[in-house]
C-alpha cells in the first residue's frame, strides 16, 4: 500500500500517515436482533469498486474524514469532512446479507 490520500485539512499525504477506519457501516436505528447486530458489527460489503470509508490523519491533523476510494486501484476519488448529522448523511450503502453467526 503506497497510495496518496488528499486530507481535507493537510492536502496530499502518504497513506502511512493515516489510520483506516473501515467502510462506512449503517448503524441500526433501533435495537437490532442478534443477527442484525452481528451483521452490523462483523459483516462488510467489501466491494470491488468505489467504497465510502473513514480515515483518520493520525500523523497529521488528527481529524477523521470520509473518503471515496476505488478498492481495485486504491484511487482516492474524493475526501471530505464528515457530514454533520444523520439526516444529512449520504444514502447509506445497502446492508450486507445477514449472517448466521451470533453476535455476542
Amino acid at each position: 500500500m503506497s497510495f496518496l490520500i488528499p486530507c481535507p485539512n493537510c492536502g496530499s499525504r502518504d497513506v502511512n500517515e493515516f489510520a483506516y477506519g473501515g467502510e462506512i457501516a449503517v448503524r441500526p436505528e433501533a435495537r437490532p436482533n442478534v443477527r442484525e447486530l452481528g451483521s452490523y458489527l462483523y459483516f462488510r460489503r467489501n466491494v470491488a469498486g468505489v467504497q465510502r470509508e473513514w480515515w483518520f490523519h493520525r500523523l497529521g491533523c488528527e481529524a477523521w474524514f470520509q473518503a471515496e476510494r476505488d478498492t481495485r486501484t486504491n484511487e482516492v476519488l474524493l475526501t471530505e469532512r464528515p457530514r454533520a448529522s444523520r439526516d444529512e448523511a449520504p444514502p447509506g450503502p445497502e446492508a450486507p446479507a445477514l449472517p448466521d453467526t451470533p453476535a455476542v
Binding site: F56, A63, W64, P82, R83
Partner: peptide, 12 residues
C-alpha cells in the same frame, strides 16, 4: 482519544 473523536465525527 481517536475513538472519542470518531464518535464525535459520526454524531456531529
Amino acid at each position: 482519544s481517536e475513538w472519542l473523536e470518531w464518535w464525535n465525527a459520526v454524531w456531529g
